[in-house]
Simulated scan of single mutants.
Amino acid sequence: MDTRRPSSTSEMQVTSIRLEAELKERLRELSGEQGYQTLIREVLWQFVEQRLMPLEKRSSSQTPLLSQSDIRVTFDAIAQREEHCAITGQPIRPQQPMKLGLTTTGELVPLSA
């Protein structure tokens, strides 16, 4: 666990956020026993930590694999160095055809052709 994260609710600040009723209900369904507020905190921490560490600086074990729904558009490309597919984790060798995927968060990621 990240040491920057508060370990108890007494160390947290109250923040108000407006959510659509349907979104709140879906979050409750997804969160199960942990509760939707905990789920929202976890998602926000993951987002912040990923934004603070660009893809190029992450080791392959730190780079979470993406799903196809995370990709907005793809472009044909040729690898200039060894890469790893952001969806499958498979290596992409230099000079091998590949695709670049633009994610929903605006990052370009390598994808297997």
Rank of each mutant, 00 (worst) to 15 (best):
Q62V: 01
G101K: 01
T74P: 03
G89T: 06
Q95E: 15
G106R: 04
Q34D: 08
V73I: 09
G32R: 06
P97S: 10
P110V: 05
D76Y: 06
L65T: 06
L100K: 15
K24E: 09
E49I: 11
T105A: 10
E33L: 10
A86L: 03
T38M: 09
Q50K: 11
R26A: 13
I17P: 01
L23C: 11
L111V: 08
H84P: 00
Q96H: 10
V14M: 12
G101I: 05
Q95K: 14
T104N: 12
L52E: 15
T103M: 07
L55M: 03
S7A: 07
E22L: 12
Q50H: 04
E22H: 09
L55W: 13
Q68C: 01
M53P: 00
R28E: 15
E82S: 06
T105P: 00
P110T: 07
Q62N: 02
M53F: 01
C85T: 04
Q96S: 07
I92R: 02
I71K: 07
L108A: 02
G106H: 05
S59Q: 13
L55F: 10
R26P: 00
H84I: 04
R51L: 10
P54F: 04
R4H: 09
M53G: 00
G35T: 08
Q46Y: 04
I40C: 11
P64V: 07
D70A: 14
D2P: 00
A113M: 02
V14C: 06
Q90R: 15
